[in-house]
Simulated scan of single mutants.
Amino acid sequence: MSDWLIYRGAGAPHDGIEHLPPPPPWRDFDGGPLVAPPAALDPSSERRLGVQRREASHHRPGETERELVNAALYLRRPLLVTGAPGSGKSTLAHSVAYELGLGRVLGWPVVSRSTLRDGLYDYDAIGRLQDLQIARATPAAAESGTPAGADPADEPGGGIGRYIRLGPLGTALLPSARPRVLLVDELDKSDIDLPNDLLNVLEEGEFRIPELERLSGSAPEVEVLSDDGAQVTVRDGRVRCRAFPFIVLTSNGERDFPAPLLRRCIHLHIPVPDKERLAAMVRAHFGEGADGRYEAVIDRFLDREPGDVRAVDQLFNAIHLTQKAGWTDEDEEETRRRLTAELMRPLDRTR
């Protein structure tokens, strides 16, 4: 194993992130004030890596995957991960967060209606207006003589910050000592404009919140809620990172991305898992020796016509059903074979 690798892909947590070299001068950011470290890994990561954390060591990425993950860490660039559904694209983000101790993975599942603003922050203007109207209608507000044009920073209940919540991308860009891990899942499902809208944010490592910029003279620091559910300070209406986040952009290959986005990313293509990798995944989720017990199911999964598309989830479903149904008699063998075939039907076929 080369000494330059920070992420080793071995599944065992370590403090290698402390030895990550400084960023290139053109990717050095100076945001502040620093926010508190994120919460520990959440159940979502545990589900993806395996039922038992010790089994996470079975998720062994290949040499190219390890090298390109580390290239993204060194260069402070997003990692664009392409591959067939179920090939382990999303799991890679959780594996990096687990091994390097980077806390909860921030997830942004992209759909056709997603906009850049969805990833950065949400401002509940209607809720703020309603609360302000209710507060001014109370006897206490009337007695205090609260003027109709009061500064929003002085509103009852904490001001405008109560109505702003950072999204997953916005939270990832908060200034922190260690990089956060952000999973932007299925970017190819987005509207045609979103990849281009991301360019400036990914290049500059910052964004602005106009609603807070307008108040920077009277309220230079405002407490808002992060995607983690924690209170964080935004200064002068600007969020700028300190450690550029480790961003994984996944794509199933349903569309091409513009060259400016590709230029800003490290591109990793994950091939369809072979038998060895599938066996490792099965051990991770079903325990030691499961790959041997269910070798026939794994072989059936791999037995496909050229061009057939199957997801690893289908294999896991077939094994779990076989395990729980307890098909052992010869009379039940036909049921097992038939249901296994149905559960692992190629995704690009109907019947």
Rank of each mutant, 00 (worst) to 15 (best):
153 A>V: 06
200 N>W: 11
115 T>L: 10
341 A>R: 14
177 A>T: 11
76 R>D: 07
175 P>K: 04
102 L>E: 07
81 V>Q: 03
326 G>S: 08
185 D>F: 04
236 D>W: 05
292 G>R: 15
254 E>W: 04
123 Y>F: 15
91 T>M: 14
126 I>T: 14
149 G>L: 09
348 D>A: 10
41 L>E: 06
312 V>Y: 03
188 D>H: 10
323 Q>Y: 09
76 R>A: 12
299 D>M: 00
319 I>K: 00
98 Y>C: 07
136 R>Y: 05
155 E>C: 13
163 Y>E: 12
218 S>R: 15
79 L>G: 07
183 L>P: 00
227 D>W: 06
182 L>H: 05
200 N>A: 14
81 V>I: 08
33 P>Q: 11
145 G>D: 05
348 D>P: 10
127 G>W: 01
130 Q>D: 11
88 G>K: 04
239 V>Y: 02
351 R>G: 07
347 L>C: 09
180 R>W: 02
157 G>Y: 12
90 S>H: 07
64 T>Y: 02
102 L>V: 11
290 A>M: 06
221 E>I: 13
86 G>F: 05
155 E>V: 03
44 S>K: 05
333 E>M: 01
335 T>K: 00
148 A>M: 10
227 D>R: 08
100 L>I: 11
93 A>F: 03
300 R>V: 00
91 T>E: 08
56 A>G: 10
287 G>Y: 04
127 G>P: 12
335 T>R: 03
236 D>N: 15
148 A>D: 15
286 F>H: 06
10 A>M: 12
264 R>S: 06
59 H>I: 13
10 A>E: 15
79 L>W: 01
67 E>P: 01
280 A>V: 00
25 P>S: 13
177 A>Q: 13
299 D>H: 02
280 A>E: 12
290 A>V: 09
